Amino acid sequence: MTHVIAIDGPSGSGKSSTSRGVASTLGYAYLDTGAMYRAMTWAMLQRGVDVHDAEAVASASAEVVLASGTDPQHPTIEADGVDVSEPIRGDEVTGAVSPVATVPEVRRQLVDLQRKLIAEAVGGIVVEGRDIGTVVAPDASLKVYLVADPVARARRRALELGVEDAEAMREALARRDAIDSNRKTAPLAQAEDAIVVDGTDMTLDEVIDRIVALAQR
Rank of each mutant, 00 (worst) to 15 (best):
S24V: 07
S24R: 13
A29L: 04
A29N: 13
T33S: 14
T33K: 05
M36L: 10
R38H: 07
T41R: 04
A43F: 14
H52C: 03
D53C: 06
A54K: 09
A58P: 08
G69A: 04
T76F: 00
T76M: 02
I77K: 00
D80I: 10
V82M: 14
S85E: 06
E86S: 10
R89F: 06
G90I: 08
G90D: 12
E92T: 15
T94Y: 00
S98C: 04
V100Q: 00
V100D: 00
V100H: 00
V103G: 03
P104I: 12
R108W: 04
R108F: 05
R108V: 07
L110N: 02
D112R: 11
D112S: 15
L113E: 15
K116V: 09
L117F: 09
V122M: 10
G123R: 07
G124D: 04
I125K: 07
V126A: 04
V126P: 03
E128R: 01
G129E: 09
D131Q: 04
G133T: 02
G133H: 01
T134Q: 08
V135C: 05
A137C: 14
A137N: 07
P138H: 06
P138G: 14
S141V: 05
L142D: 04
K143H: 08
L146F: 03
P150H: 07
P150N: 15
P150D: 07
V151C: 02
A152L: 08
A158W: 03
L159A: 11
E160Y: 08
E160P: 03
E164F: 03
D165A: 12
D165K: 11
A166I: 12
